[in-house]
């Protein structure tokens, strides 16, 4: 029983990280019809930005200050690379969705190569405060603190995004643009600025997710291909939730996170198949698509 609760919280934390990645992907796709393959590289870059700052700040700001700076660096790093990507690579290709996808594929290839060249294929350990990697005892339970941090970050971002979309002018433009981009332009609104904004938001969430994944699920380590692995699960979350639906990605992220850890723990590790949890998620995707090709909350096309 006690492991069940710990496993469940771990699954929810994983779902929170997936949501951070998938929300950006889903918004970008919904508004711009762009599948951002480079999102995986954004994740990794975010984690490396965190590593860079954390390892240079040792002792300067105290443990908590260092941790805050690490998180800020990862988020800002993801946002910055997303901004540059949108302005330099995506914007010149407006109206050519396939080329936009291909250019992000090339960017992912190039960025991962660059990271491999700069940092080598060995993992780097990101300095973190001791409490992050320890556990909290609740009765007989030993619950990792990192899980709660990831879960908290997911909830904060979800609330922030919901508020932004509901109550701000740009949120209104984005919601309208997801529905009918052309008509937004026909009201005299420069939808290109919303594109850039959505990319930056997605990049920031991805940078944060990359760092959290390293802390919580990767033993504090980051390596150049980590983001691409994570991205594939985020894609699965986006398709299961329904392309372009933020609420759909919330539900799907939780579902995928839980299925993955339950199957991985209860079926996989008992049979010596460490990757069974990962495989089960793909089966889940196949099942959902048979029942609802548009995803849980998407509209079938």
């Amino acid at each position: 029983m006690s492991t069940f609760i710990a496993i469940t919280i771990s699954g929810l934390a994983l779902g929170a990280v997936y949501f951070l990645v998938a929300s950006g992907l889903s918004l970008i796709y919904g508004l711009m019809d762009v599948l951002n393959f480079a999102h995986g590289a954004f994740l990794t870059l975010g984690a490396y930005a965190g590593w860079e700052v954390a390892s240079h700040l040792t002792g300067a700001l105290g443990t908590e200050g260092q941790f805050a700076a690490t998180i800020a660096a990862a988020t800002a790093g993801g946002a910055f690379v997303a901004l540059v990507t949108e302005v330099l690579l995506i914007r010149p290709l407006y109206g050519r969705p396939i080329s936009q996808i291909l250019v992000t594929v090339g960017l992912d290839l190039a960025l991962v190569g660059l990271l491999l060249g700069a940092f080598g294929s060995n993992s780097r350990a990101i300095p973190a405060p001791a409490w992050l990697t320890s556990v909290t005892r609740v009765g007989a339970e030993r619950l990792p603190n990192g899980d709660f941090v990831a879960l908290g970050a997911g909830i904060v971002v979800l609330c922030g995004l919901t508020w932004f979309l509901r109550y701000t002018r740009y949120g209104l433009v984005i919601r309208a643009g997801v529905e009918n981009r052309e008509m937004v332009q026909a009201l005299g609104i420069d939808v290109g600025r919303a594109f850039t904004l959505v990319f930056v938001i997605g990049g920031a969430a991805a940078g944060l997710a990359g760092l959290l994944y390293s802390f919580v699920f990767s033993g504090g380590l980051v390596d150049p291909t980590q983001g691409d692995q994570l991205l594939i699960f985020a894609f699965i979350v986006v398709v299961i939730g329904g392309l372009g639906s933020l609420n759909g990605s919330v539900i799907a992220a939780i579902l995928v996170g839980l299925v993955q850890v339950y199957v991985g723990f209860y079926l996989g590790s008992h049979n010596g198949l460490a990757e069974l949890g990962n495989v089960s998620v793909v089966l889940l995707l196949a099942v959902v698509l048979q029942a609802r090709p548009g995803g849980l909350l998407g509209t079938p096309t």
Binding site: L102, D108, L109, A110, G113, L114, L116, G117
Partner: peptide, 17 residues
């Protein structure tokens, strides 16, 4: 960057697109 063929090939690919 030059030690990684993937970086150069990715960059060439982007220029082509």
């Amino acid at each position: 960057p030059l030690s990684q063929p993937e970086f150069l090939l990715g960059a060439i690919f982007i220029l082509f697109i």
